[in-house]
Amino acid sequence: SEEELEEFAKEVLRRGITIIVNGIRITEVEIFVKVLREILEKR
């Protein structure tokens, strides 16, 4: 749901943790923004 997305976004921003994806360091915020864009483009 959109509320869950908002909560996830807030949690990500609070933690600001960097994770490893395919050997490249990407912040969770960047991943969230990318996923959010993909979701919005599909609408």
Rank of each mutant, 00 (worst) to 15 (best):
E30R: 10
E28N: 11
K10R: 15
N22Y: 10
I24T: 08
R43N: 07
L36E: 01
E41H: 11
I20V: 08
K34L: 10
I17E: 08
V33M: 12
A9W: 14
R15G: 05
I39D: 01
I39V: 05
I17A: 09
V21N: 02
S1M: 13
I24Y: 08
V35P: 00
K10C: 13
E2G: 08
I39S: 03
V12N: 00
V35W: 15
L36M: 07
R37P: 00
V33S: 04
S1W: 15
R14K: 09
F8W: 15
E30P: 05
K42S: 11
T18M: 13
E7Y: 09
E3R: 13
R43M: 14
G16V: 14
K10Q: 06
I24Q: 09
V29C: 10
R14T: 04
I19C: 03
E41C: 15
E11D: 08
V29I: 10
E3I: 10
R43P: 05
V33E: 00
E30A: 14
I17H: 09
T18F: 13
I17P: 03
V35G: 01
K10T: 05
T18N: 07
V21E: 00
G16H: 12
R14S: 09
E2N: 12
E38W: 15
R14Q: 05
I39W: 15
V12Q: 04
R37H: 04
K34W: 13
E30N: 09
G16Y: 15
E7H: 08
E11A: 13
E2P: 12
R14M: 07
R25S: 07
T27R: 06
I24G: 02
R43I: 14
E4R: 12
R43W: 15
K42M: 12
I19N: 00
R15F: 08
T18V: 14
E3S: 12
I17G: 11
L5H: 01
I17W: 15
R14F: 05
F8T: 01
E38K: 12
R37S: 03
L36F: 05
E28T: 14
T18K: 12
F8S: 01
V12K: 02
I17Y: 15
R43Y: 14
I20C: 09
E11Q: 12
F8K: 00
E6P: 03
E11R: 14
I26C: 08
T27H: 08
I20F: 08
K34E: 04
E41N: 14
R25P: 11
L40K: 03
A9F: 11
N22L: 09
F32D: 00
F8E: 00
G23I: 12
E28Q: 10
